[in-house]
Amino acid sequence: MTTTAAQTPRTDRPAHRRRHSRGVGRGAGPLTYVGITVLFLIVLFPVYYGIIGSFMNTQDTNSYPPALWPKHGIHPQNYSNALDIVPLGRQYLNSIMQTAAITIGQVLTSVLAAYAFVFLPLRARNFWFGVFLATMMIPYESIIIPNYLFVTGLGLSDTIAGLALPFLASGFGTFLLRQSFLAFPTELRDAARVDGAGHLRFLWSILTPLSKPTLAALSIYCALSAWNQYFWPLLITTRSEHQTIQIGIGQLQSSDTQDPGMVLAGVVLALLPTLLLVVFGQRFIVRGLTAGAVK
């Protein structure tokens, strides 16, 4: 179907633009510049203020009319203040462990399932694949109550296991990898079989290395959504040293709204990994996310 989105080759762009210019032979008009600049200023303002504000002291953030840049000097101590009020360092670690557990778990279970769907003889294949697809239609919030009762009943509140367990499999991930495996050249599979490679051997030393781009896209997609989770971590953690950074900055905000600079410092800390990912790993993100549009 719409494989268009997923297969957008980046290298296309310059060629595309060159041809564009030849075809019409005119640059963008002044209206285009006005439009893009206005949208730029509005859309990027929260980003600007979030970062700049994290270095401003209360003299600037609480002045009226407000300061748009630090008039009273740069205040990096906002960051240490934020770390003092909420154990953000500890929460950072929790977020990293939760994200790692979910990402590794999801990729692992998805690789195995997708392998079965593509390379193994499977009775009622369509039925089982339907089961996997069905999981993508259930909104997580509609089953959060029994999950909460179950996980807290196991005594797993305030643990990484409690944060990660419900998310260790993914219908989307299985679907994505299945599509990628289906495109795998059968000659390679046959050659590996002739050489005596069993299923696990083939899966581990031939298939996964050759599926790296898809695996990278899926991992980034998983990691982003795990890192950004809010509802479940809010329910399953009660004490601040067990909470994730996302919950932590929410607490920071409700704990002290008199010092916005300090609150914003917490935001920037929580934002850092994903911001770096978007700045440097955009290519993979685009691939991972547009793959979702292929359904």
Partner: peptide, 30 residues
């Protein structure tokens, strides 16, 4: 422009909400 407009994507619901909470503040909000 392309890179800049991609930046909001880096924000989680929590980080974006907290920033908007600061911007919306009736007394000191920008």
């Amino acid at each position: 422009f392309r890179s800049a407009f991609a930046l909001p994507f880096a924000f989680s619901v929590a980080t974006a909400s907290v920033i908007f909470g600061v911007l919306y503040n009736p007394a000191s909000g920008v």
